Structure formats: structure tokens, C-alpha cells
Computed example of a mutant assay.
Amino acid sequence: MKEELSFQDIAYNRIEQMILRSELKPGERIDKNQLEVDLKLKLAPIRQAIAMLGRVNLINIYAQSGSYVSKINVKSIYQAYTVRKSLEQLVVGRLIPKVTADMISDLKKIINLQRVYIEAQDYDGFFDVDDQFHHYLYTATDNEFIWNWLQEINLQFNRLRYLKVELQMSRWSQLTEEHEAIIRCIENGDAVTAKIAISQHLDSVKKDVASIQSVYPEYFE
């Protein structure tokens, strides 16, 4: 039986999505009364949700002046990129000795889904399946805890994702081809090349930050 979400959870999820999609823009002051109208919720769960979003660095809360959507911290993005790159190279290396035909089949099914979402121009669906691809690498190597730990880091990457869509910078087909290259390396048992492939796949973050920052410098700190 699916657990029913509390009003606080609903407020949290909706405000989080508004921040990730830049409906609430970096640096923008949070208007709790407007959120009360937009979300059709009372102020109490909205305040609680804002406090929780402050703890994951999506909102800055100031006692005197109010709450503001946090700007994107470039140093934090690069540090998060370094951590995730190191972990995913490790995870891919651990997957190769234990990979099965069923695992390869599962990964290829994810690629097929990505192509469906590209064709439909459904970036929400594409992003979900992109996450599913990387998540699978962690679960297949019994590293679910690490994946869950990474989710706060991934919030900052997700902010970049939606800004890329806004700027028509998304490289959907290229990302899918990079996933396919990673799968081929895993299937061939080539750990060295697999680590290089996943490293190059994640390296796009640095270029994305520079490109987005040149258009929206006010969104960064």
C-alpha cells in the first residue's frame, strides 16, 4: 500500500520542482503567501517545507529579510562533479566482474526508453530514465546507500539540466550514445575503457556550467 504524502511533503516536492525548473529563479525572494495560493496549501506546511529545502541548500533563510532561492554555487558543482565522477568510475569497475546478460539487457532497455522520450521531446521522462541508468549501476553493485547519499548532490546537477532545456542546450542523442558506449565497455569486460567512457560522459558538466553562466551570470555565485 502506497504511503500517503503529508501536506508538508506535497509542499516540499512542489517547491523543489519549482526551484529545479527555475519557476522560482536563483536569487528570487520566496513569497510564502503567493505559494499558499499557488499550491492551495496552508502556510504551516509551506514554512516547514522551506526550512527543509534550506537544509539541502536550495533555499537561503535569513531571519530579517526572508527566504531566497539559493544561487548556484560553482565551486560546489565542481566538487560534486569530482565526487560523482570518482564514485561512478569505481562502480563501473565493480560491475564488470559480476555483470550478467540480464543486467546488460536491462541497461539496453533503459536506452530504448531514452530514445522514446527523445522522439516525444519529453525531457521530464528523459531525465527520469537518465537517472534510472546511473541508479542501475549503483544497485547492480550493491551500492544503493551511496546512490541515496548522492541525491542531495544531484539536486544541483538537476538545476543545470532544466536551464540547459531552457537554453536549448540539451544533448539528448549524444547523452544516449554515451550511455550506449558505457554499456558496450561493460559488456566487453573492458574496465579501463568503461571508466574512461563514464568519465567523459560526466565531463560535460564543466562545459555546461560555463555556457549557462555566460547567459545567466546572475544565477551563480
Results as ranks from 00 to 15, higher is better:
residue 135 H to W: 09
residue 135 H to C: 11
residue 135 H to P: 00
residue 136 Y to H: 11
residue 137 L to C: 07
residue 137 L to N: 05
residue 137 L to I: 09
residue 138 Y to S: 02
residue 138 Y to I: 02
residue 138 Y to F: 09
residue 138 Y to N: 00
residue 139 T to W: 05
residue 139 T to A: 07
residue 139 T to R: 06
residue 139 T to S: 09
residue 139 T to N: 08
residue 139 T to P: 00
residue 139 T to Y: 06
residue 140 A to N: 08
residue 140 A to G: 05
residue 141 T to A: 09
residue 141 T to P: 03
residue 141 T to R: 04
residue 141 T to Y: 06
residue 141 T to E: 09
residue 142 D to M: 11
residue 142 D to K: 08
residue 142 D to E: 13
residue 143 N to Y: 07
residue 143 N to A: 12
residue 145 F to Y: 13
residue 145 F to L: 15
residue 145 F to S: 09
residue 146 I to T: 08
residue 146 I to A: 05
residue 146 I to C: 02
residue 146 I to D: 03
residue 146 I to K: 00
residue 147 W to R: 02
residue 147 W to K: 02
residue 147 W to I: 05
residue 147 W to E: 01
residue 147 W to Q: 03
residue 147 W to F: 02
residue 148 N to Q: 10
residue 148 N to G: 08
residue 148 N to H: 12
residue 148 N to F: 12
residue 148 N to D: 10
residue 149 W to D: 06
residue 149 W to N: 10
residue 150 L to E: 00
residue 150 L to K: 00
residue 150 L to A: 03
residue 151 Q to A: 14
residue 152 E to T: 15
residue 152 E to Y: 12
residue 152 E to P: 06
residue 152 E to G: 09
residue 152 E to D: 13
residue 153 I to P: 00
residue 153 I to N: 04
residue 154 N to L: 14
residue 155 L to M: 06
residue 155 L to Y: 01
residue 155 L to R: 04
residue 156 Q to D: 07
residue 156 Q to N: 12
residue 156 Q to L: 15
residue 156 Q to K: 14
residue 156 Q to E: 14
residue 157 F to D: 05
residue 157 F to G: 04
residue 158 N to D: 07
residue 158 N to W: 11
residue 159 R to F: 09
residue 159 R to Y: 06
residue 160 L to E: 04
residue 160 L to D: 00
residue 160 L to W: 01
residue 160 L to N: 02
residue 161 R to F: 15
residue 161 R to I: 09
residue 161 R to A: 12
residue 161 R to P: 01
residue 161 R to Q: 09
residue 162 Y to T: 02
residue 162 Y to W: 15
residue 162 Y to C: 08
residue 163 L to C: 12
residue 163 L to H: 05
residue 163 L to I: 14
residue 164 K to E: 11
residue 164 K to S: 06
residue 164 K to G: 04
residue 165 V to W: 07
residue 165 V to R: 06
residue 165 V to L: 11
residue 165 V to C: 10
residue 165 V to Q: 05
residue 166 E to P: 07
residue 166 E to N: 13
residue 167 L to A: 08
residue 167 L to T: 02
residue 167 L to P: 00
residue 168 Q to Y: 13
residue 168 Q to F: 14
residue 169 M to L: 13
residue 169 M to S: 08
residue 169 M to F: 10
residue 170 S to M: 15
residue 170 S to Q: 13
residue 170 S to T: 14
residue 170 S to R: 10
residue 170 S to I: 14
residue 171 R to F: 01
residue 171 R to Y: 00
residue 172 W to L: 15
residue 172 W to N: 10
